[in-house]
Amino acid sequence: MYVWFDALAVYLTGVESPGDRQGSPWPPNIQVMGKDIVRFHALYLPAMLLAIGKPLSHTLLAHAHWTAQQRKMSKSIGNVADPFDAMELWGVDAVHFYMARVGGRFKDDVDETRSLLGNFFLRITSRTIRKRVASAPQLTFAQLLDQSLDGPNGGVLPMLRTLKARVERYVEKFEVGEALDAIILVLREANGALTHTAPWSPQNPPAVAQESYLLSLEVLQVTGVCLQPFIPEAACNLLDALGVREGERSLDFAGVGKADVGEVRGMKLFEEKKMAALQPGQ
């Protein structure tokens, strides 16, 4: 798939030259442009292309603006934010996450979230819970699926089963922020279920810890696969920590019970300074 971002090369000089070479990126599957220049690229440029017998873009995607003090960012004004400075400070994943979560809604302007992933992973892989799980009758996730999950855990599984389809549907419509929200909603539900079931509590039998542990690992595996386009470094760290094989990390394995969790290793997915970039209001 070719995605053509608006630039000088998109005009006829940029279309004509590469069009004579084999493997030309023109026409693009998606032509991305700012909302203020839609008229030029949706009317004038297609008319020119048709006049010289060149193919049209397959899809036009007009995005809203990032603003500063309610004004469109402009090099001439100087009210711009440097993404390279942000990546140097917070890391690529943190900036990637923020851009997708906050700016991945192309319809509305964004004027300059907490990730549940790292916290949820550290909670379920704590030494206390793993010790209690080890004392419970050994159970696989496939065997767990044959049981009826009650209480808070019962609400997590249906959301997890439909996550892949929801993410794919949003991405196909270029609703990146909504796709990421769908993933975060599942993590929030699973994190809440973990709090309510309290598998670390000695007042609950080890079987409760076993159920929460297996379900939570499956949530992490599925969401980890889905998060790879958004926070590739952290998602890779997570899947490594879960022992998920390299060949089971594509979206085909984002369904419940599709991939196997191997030997789980406790680890921090984000550095502290990078986690701070994912906090609300940052």
Score class of each variant (00 low, 15 high):
P25V: 01
E88A: 15
S24K: 04
A86E: 08
R39V: 08
L45W: 14
H65E: 03
W26Y: 15
S57T: 12
A47F: 11
F84L: 13
G34T: 00
P83E: 06
G23V: 05
M33A: 11
P27D: 04
G23W: 06
H63V: 10
E88T: 15
S57N: 06
L61A: 07
A81Y: 11
D20G: 13
M73G: 05
G23H: 07
Y44S: 11
L8N: 09
R71G: 07
M87P: 00
S74V: 04
V102D: 14
A100S: 11
K72M: 05
F97D: 01
L45Q: 07
A64K: 03
I30P: 00
A64R: 02
L8R: 07
Y98W: 11
H41D: 05
H96A: 09
F84P: 00
Q69A: 10
L50E: 14
E16N: 10
G104E: 06
F97C: 03
K35M: 15
V80R: 05
F97M: 03
R71I: 13
A100Y: 07
N79G: 09
G23N: 06
A42G: 01
D36I: 00
P27T: 05
R71D: 10
H58V: 12
T13I: 14
I30Y: 03
Q22I: 12
L89H: 12
A7S: 10
A94L: 05
A51F: 05
V102R: 15
Q70M: 11
L61Y: 01
A9K: 02
W66M: 09
R39T: 09
Y11A: 08
K54D: 02
G19Y: 15
Q31V: 03
Q69N: 12
F84K: 10
R39D: 13
Q31H: 14
G91W: 02
V95H: 00
P25R: 03
V102G: 08
A100V: 10
A9H: 12
A86V: 14
Y98R: 14
I37L: 10
A51N: 09
K72Q: 02
L8A: 08
Q70G: 12
Q70Y: 10
R21A: 15
F97H: 03
A68S: 08
G34W: 01
A51V: 01
V95G: 04
L12V: 01
I37G: 02
S17E: 13
D82V: 07
L50N: 11
H58D: 09
M48Q: 10
V80N: 08
V95M: 08
G23L: 03
R39H: 14
F97W: 09
H41G: 02
F84R: 12
A94K: 00
D82Q: 01
L89T: 15
L89I: 13
N79T: 10
A62W: 01
Y98H: 08
P46D: 01
L50W: 04
S76I: 06
G19S: 12
S17K: 12
A47V: 03
S74K: 08
D82M: 07
G19L: 02
D20T: 14
V95W: 02
T13R: 15
R71Q: 14
H63E: 02
Q69Y: 01
A86S: 12
